[in-house]
Amino acid sequence: MSDTTAEAGRRPRPALAHHFDDLAQQKDAATLGMWVFLATEVLFFGGLFAAYSVYRGWYPEAFGAASHSLDITLGAVNTAVLITSSLTMALAVHAAETGERRLLVLFLVATMALGAVFLGIKAVEYAAKFAEHHVPGPSFHFEEEALSRNAQIFFSLYFVMTGLHALHMVIGLGIMTWMLVWAWNGTITKEYASPIEISGLYWHFVDIVWIFLFPLLYLIGRHA
């Protein structure tokens, strides 16, 4: 604890960009910027959710049947993994704000590890879908012939939605790597924790998207 603060004290104060009056204004601007960006992201996924809702309304049977073919255990494990990563992210933000550098590094590594586990499980699921010929296109095959036509729509949306979500996870891992470097070399300090806070906002957002994707893709029609 003491050595962290001492070390932070030796380093130069974080650079205030020339066009801001003070650090508070700079932090305010950066935080607002991330919130505006997340508004963009909401609409980005919103378009997909709109398409999903329309088609599910039209083809409930096919969507239910196609959803059944997903591995709910892997999906549930992945949900747990992501929620845990949100927790470690929140702890990382706290560590940054209190200036505990070693804890910050630890929690960032934990967050990244959980993110990587998520992507790994996702890859296993994708491989299974390829093996089962559930990828839409010429070689598509679905066990329930009568529902096969519309099941393709479900799988198209499944791959686009989870694919774009996974892409966001990959970008998130990139950001976390960058933050890890900054945490390691002491750029992040108690006074200059906003990069971690803002990256955290992004990470939580990507988790929340999954919280919507999981029930919509894995859990529909289970009551039947």
């Binding site: 009568a146 529902l147 036509r149």
Partner: peptide, 19 residues
């Protein structure tokens, strides 16, 4: 063309598509 989509009550989705 899509007989499985909306099947009338009392029938099974056995009709093949004529698409």
């Amino acid at each position: 063309v899509d007989p499985g989509a909306r099947v009338a009550q009392g029938f099974r989705p056995v009709m093949p598509t004529y698409q």
